[in-house]
Amino acid sequence: MVEPTRAQVAVDARRGPLDAEAADAVRRLAADATAADGIAPISEQPLLWLQDPEARVEHLLAHRGDGNLAGYAQVDVGAVTTAPAELVVHPAARREGVASALLEAAHATAAREPGRTLRVWAHGALPAARAFAASTRMPVVRELWRMRLDLGRHPLSAPRPLPPHVTVRPFVPGEDEEAWRRVNSRAFAHHPEQGRMTSADLRAREAEPWFDPAGFLLAEREGLLLGSVWTKVHAAGELGDRPVGEIYVVGVDPDAQGLGLGGALTDRGLAYLAAAGMQEVILYTGAENEVAIRTYRRVGFERSAVDVMFGSDTPGSPHGATMAP
C-alpha cells in the first residue's frame, strides 16, 4: 500500500485477477476517460487481463478520500528487463496527484526485479500525457503508429499470388490454437507484446464478441502452418460512427519468410474486410519498422494516430514530478 499523497490518494496494489466489482469499476473509469479524451486510455490486452488468473500483472487502484476509483494502472511483470504499464486517471480527478501516486507505485512494482525499468504507454500521445512524462523525466522510447486505409479512395487490386503449393483456409476454433500460437511465437520472437501471447490470451480473444474465425486465415503447405492473417471489425462507435476493419495480426514463420507470403496474406485480409462492407481499415505498426511502413503506404495506408511509450533507463522511483493529469 502506498501512503496517501497531498490529494489524499491511496493506491491499493493487487496481484491475481480482480473481482467482478473492481474490474467493472476499472472498465467504467476507462469508458469515462474515453468519452472525455476521444481515445481509449487502456488497450485491449490489459482489459482482458483484469480477471485473467494466469496474467502476470499487478493492478494498482487509486482511491481518493470519498472511496471512488480515481485512477488505475496495470504493470506487466512477466518480463525481466522492462515492465510495460498503462495508466488512466478519471477526468474528475486529474491534477490532484493521482497520476503521480500511480506512477510511484508502478515504479516500485517494476523495481522488485533488480535492474528492471518501467515503461508507460500513452495512447494518442495527448498533450497532458506528454507534459506529465516530461515532468517525471521519462522520455519517449517507442512509438506505435496507427495507419488508416480509405477503401473509397484506394480500391483494392487483385490479391498477390500465394507461393507454390500454399493454400489458405479459415481458422478452426478448438483445433488450430496451438499450431497458430507456435508459429506466432516464432514470427514475433523479438516483439515485446505479440510474441508472448499465451493460450489463455488466445482463448480470451476467441470469447470476445468481435471474434470471427472466417476472418482469421491460415496459410498452409502440405498441412504445415506457415503464416496467418487475423482480421477484426470494430463496431460503430468504437473508432468512429461506422464499423472499422483492422488487420489485427499478420505473422509468417521465419522458415517461410522471403516467399512473399506476408503481402499475399495481407491482401486476402483486406479483401475479406472489404467484402464485409468495411470502408475503412486500420493496422498498427512500430514507427521503427520502416520496411513495413513503406509497404503499407504503397497500398494506401497513412499514419492516422500514434501511441507513445515513455521510459527511463534508471530503475526505481521517478524524480522531479511536478504535475499530474
Rank of each mutant, 00 (worst) to 15 (best):
S185K: 12
T295G: 12
H190F: 14
D253K: 08
G262M: 12
P161T: 12
I39N: 14
E113L: 12
Q279N: 00
R56D: 15
A73S: 13
R64T: 15
F188S: 00
G71N: 07
E178Y: 08
P4G: 06
R130G: 07
P315R: 04
F171I: 10
L156F: 10
P161A: 12
L60S: 04
V172Y: 05
R130S: 05
L225Q: 05
G223A: 11
I247V: 14
G286V: 05
V281H: 00
V172L: 13
V77R: 06
D212C: 05
R146D: 05
A35P: 11
R153G: 14
P213G: 02
R298I: 01
T285F: 15
S304N: 01
W145E: 08
A131E: 13
V183H: 11
G286E: 15
I247P: 01
G262Y: 10
P114E: 07
F132E: 06
L60N: 03
G195L: 11
G320R: 07
A287P: 09
A20C: 02
R94E: 12
A85I: 06
Y284E: 00
L259S: 12
Y72W: 12
W210T: 03
A128F: 05
Q74I: 06
I293R: 08
G67W: 07
D201F: 10
Y272F: 14
A23N: 01
A133D: 02
R169L: 00
A7Q: 08
H90P: 09
S157H: 13
Y296H: 04
A236K: 10
P318C: 06
I282A: 03
P114S: 10
E58Q: 13
R130H: 12
W49A: 11
T167L: 02
A292N: 09
E290N: 05
R64H: 07
F132W: 14
A187V: 01
R64Y: 02
S135D: 15
V244R: 01
P213K: 00
A219V: 02
D201I: 01
V252L: 04
P325R: 14
D241H: 02
A305D: 07
M309V: 15
A55D: 15
F310P: 11
L156V: 08
Q74H: 01
A85L: 01
E178L: 03
P325V: 03
A30P: 01
I39W: 02
R203S: 00
A128L: 13
L265Q: 12
A236H: 03
L270F: 08
E193W: 09
E96V: 03
M197S: 13
V75N: 09
S304V: 04
R130F: 07
P4F: 02
F216C: 11
D150H: 13
E21Y: 10
S228R: 02
R6P: 04
E288R: 03
M323F: 10
G227D: 14
S135A: 14
L61F: 10
P173W: 04
T231N: 07
G65A: 13
F188H: 02
P173M: 07
V281P: 00
H90T: 04
E222T: 02
